[in-house]
Structures are given as structure tokens and as C-alpha cells.
Design a protein around this nucleic acid. Structure first.
Lengths: 249, 249
DNA sequence: GAGTGGTCTAGACCACGGT
DNA sequence: CCGTGGTCTAGACCACTCA
């Protein structure tokens, strides 16, 4: 792999160093790094700023630069978990917990906008980044729209969105998502590797393909210490209804 | 006003230039600006990066730097708590818990982008809808930018955003917000009228006025049982960083 | 006081876009 | 082609933290 920019190269090498040292560790100084990698200090600083933006490191004026346990920002776009993690320089994977197919009752059929009485594929996975549990996901998909798909297809590094495109010719075009805070139950905390009673975000996402058909409903629990939602906000335009807003159940 | 960093000073002067030239206009080149302001090109670049992050300018490699056109299709809006509640048919109000002014230390001054050592107004309120506590808010505002404002001005049905406009001629133009899940401490739960240990959302919002000046930093705890973020999501646009959407407490 | 990150300078070369 | 932004260097001084 060729790094066009030296700062990107330095960035990657420092990120590797971070992984080696572990969270909380202090990195060598900028001058030391610039010597070690044979680049100027300005380049090292640019690389560190990149890692800063990615929340990999934390800098304290006068003290040093430290490896951070990153809170992963949740982009409010329909990116797959894998793409999301890779963009942060983390290696995504999945651990399949269980899967089955059930017959949709009226409520589930309604949510998936499918006929009642038909089969629904359910897959429960732990999603990991660099081997560390990040979210606990349960996927619901109308079996008619993804014929032949099983839970095993979604093990390891497989991406549901990729499979949707390559096997079924379906592309995600839109979706809605809600987010609420929850306190983790013991078994959930256990699967996520955090203490029970920790805070988490509960995402519920419904996605549609190019035909407007619902192809997934995902309920996902994300560790509160590793997930952070960031958004830009704009003032309301007069007369416009909000495209999105806080709601009260 | 003294700008400690020369890049901040340059930033402000270029922002003024942008306002003068109008949307779509091409700015002078970086070398030209560095000569005009008597700073190095690196400093100009740093200033431009700041304006880039604030979406004031847009740079095109090989072409130039341009004043950004009014944002297209901003998917999301910053409404005040009061407007938000009224839209849901609820009657908003506030209960003032305490207020004071403090001298900004370096960290706070940095967050508010104001000179260190100056005064900051802090106001802590419980926000209610139909008399029921919804959020617990702590507002921070640079006193210089809202002279004479006190906590009492924000009691009852008063809206900070309204006051900003009517008394100080400042309109919210942009902002950023982050959201994380937390577990409520006993005293927080008490103020919100929920059991301790309940889940909540912690919003941290920074808003700017038409001059690009920070006019508030608000930390707000929203009851997890009454607040839910809902958003539309779109597939990622190639190359685009997430300009994301969401909701406000 | 020694070492850290934060800022700035004055120069260089490269990659890209329009004419 | 020329002017633009993008990257990089080698050095300097300042502000901060911590032993």
C-alpha cells in the first residue's frame, strides 16, 4: 500500500503504535516522532491532528499526547457498520449469536411493510471493532425479499448491505432511525464486555431499497462509552417543518 | 478586541471580507492574503481551515477559495426548547435553579472562543413541558456578548434565542451538537422527577450567531423516557463527510 | 528547569484547473 | 501556460505541565 501523503503514512504508523501501547499510554513527543519517522515536526503534527479528529489520541498542552479510548462518532448516514469502522482505522468483524426464521405477526409485518404470515429472517450478532465489542444487533428482514439468506452468511466480515447489492440487486436508498438512551441489562452488558448498569444507545433503524421496500429493521445497542452522536445544526427556516426532531413517546 | 492567535485575527478579517464580497465570490489567493495581512502563508492556511470547518468558505484545488453559497437543503434545525414543545402542543416553562458569573479559565474560554479571564454567565434551569420536567440545562454564555443579561431574564417562559435577537441583535446561524447516553445521578434524577439510575441523553450544543461568534454552550440532560431522537438517514454520498441531522432538546 | 504541545515563519516543490 | 490550493521542511519562540 502506497501512502500518497507522508502525513497519512505517519498517521497510520502512529495509530499502530497506539494499538501497541494501549489506552491511556503516553506517546513519544512530536520531536522524537519526527526524528523516528524522518519527517518534519509539522508533518507529525498534521498526522496527529488527523488522529485527534478520529479520537484516537488526546493531546494535553505541556503534558503530552496520549492514546485515547475512542468514543466512536455515529454518522447519521446509512453507512454499514463495516465501512464506518474502517473509516476510523478499525477492523470490523461480527460474531454470530443466533439466527432463525419466524412467521411475522401483525405487528412485525406492519413494521416491515410485508404481508402477515410470511417468514422473517432474524439474525443476532455482536459487531466488533479491532476485536472489541461495539454493538449488539438484531436484524429483521422479510425472507421473501432476501431468498435463501441465512445467519451464517452474515458471519465474520460479511456486510449485509454488500449482500443486498450483489445477491439481490437491492440498494439502500433511504431510511429512518430513532435513538434512545437505555441502561444495559446484565446479559447485554456481558455480551458487550462492559459493567451491567452502564449507559447505552438503542438505535432502531428501518431501511428501504430503490423500490421503496423495507429490507431491514435493525435494533442495535451501542456502548455508551464508545458511541457518540455528532451533528451540525441549523436554525429553523420560517414555515418549514423539521425533517427530523426529538419526539416524545 | 485582542486576538491571541494571529490566525484567529486573520480568520476574522477574512470572514469580514467574505461578508463584503457575497456568496460565490472568489477570495484572493493564499499568497496574496499572506502579504496583505503580513503573516506567513501557513498562518493564512490555518485561518482558512478554520473558516472551512465553519463552512464559511469552500476551497477547490487548482481553482481558488470561494465564499460559500447559502447551505443547500439543510436537513436539520436548531429549534428552541420552547418552540419544540409548543409544536407538540405542550406548554413550555423554565424553573431557574441558580445562576452566576464566573471568570473563564483557559478551557472554558477555548470552548466559547473568547479571551481567557473574561466573565461568563452561567444559568442552570429545569425545562418543563406542561409542568413536567423534561431537561436539566446549564447555559454558558460569554458575558461580553450578552451584556447585562442575568439568570432572572431566563425564568418562566423566556426564550434565550428571542432575547438574543431582540436585545442583542444576534441570530443563531449554525451550531454543532453531540449526544451521548448517561445514567442519571441521584440529584439529577431528583430534579427531573425520575428514579435515580434511569437512562438519559446528554446533549452538548455550541451555537454561533451571524458573525460566527459563539453565543452559547449548553449542556443538557434529557429524560430518556421522554426523549427520543428521530432522524431520516440517507445513503452516503461519495466523498462527502457526514453533514448529519438530528434533533434538539 | 526540562520537556511538552501550540504557534509562526520563509521557503520549496507538487498536483490540479482553467485559459 | 500560470495561478491556484496541497504538502512538506527546518528552524524559531512561546505557553504550559510536572517533578
Amino acid at each position: 500500500m502506497v501512502a500518497a501523503r507522508r502525513s497519512t503514512e505517519v498517521s497510520a504508523r502512529v495509530a499502530a503504535l497506539c494499538a501497541e501501547l494501549g489506552p491511556g499510554a503516553m506517546l513519544p513527543g512530536e520531536r522524537e516522532l519526527s526524528g523516528r519517522f524522518g519527517v518534519s515536526r509539522a508533518t507529525v503534527r498534521k498526522a496527529l491532528e488527523e488522529l485527534m479528529a478520529r479520537r484516537v489520541v488526546e493531546r494535553r498542552h505541556g503534558a503530552g499526547t496520549f492514546v485515547r479510548r475512542p468514543a466512536v462518532a455515529q454518522p447519521l448516514m446509512a453507512t454499514s457498520f463495516g465501512d464506518d469502522m474502517r473509516r476510523r482505522g478499525l477492523e470490523p468483524s461480527s460474531r454470530l449469536l443466533w439466527w432463525d426464521t419466524v412467521v411475522a405477526d401483525t405487528e412485525l409485518a406492519g413494521r416491515l411493510e410485508m404481508p402477515g404470515g410470511e417468514a422473517v429472517l432474524r439474525v443476532c450478532r455482536v459487531r466488533l471493532a479491532d476485536g472489541e465489542p461495539m454493538t449488539l444487533e438484531t436484524l429483521h428482514a422479510p425472507a421473501e425479499r432476501v431468498p435463501g439468506l441465512t445467519g451464517e452468511d452474515l458471519e465474520g466480515a460479511a456486510s449485509y448491505y454488500d449482500i443486498l447489492v450483489t445477491r439481490f440487486g437491492r440498494r439502500i436508498r433511504s431510511g429512518t432511525q430513532s435513538v434512545a438512551p437505555v441502561v444495559l441489562e446484565a446479559h447485554e452488558a456481558d455480551l458487550l464486555g462492559v459493567p451491567p448498569g452502564d449507559a447505552a444507545l438503542r438505535f432502531v433503524r428501518t431501511s428501504r431499497d430503490q423500490h421503496g421496500e423495507v429490507v431491514e429493521r435493525v435494533e442495535s445497542l451501542a456502548r455508551g462509552d464508545r458511541y457518540l452522536i455528532e451533528m451540525d445544526i441549523m436554525p429553523p427556516r420560517d414555515g418549514a417543518e423539521p425533517v427530523s426532531s426529538g419526539a416524545m413517546p
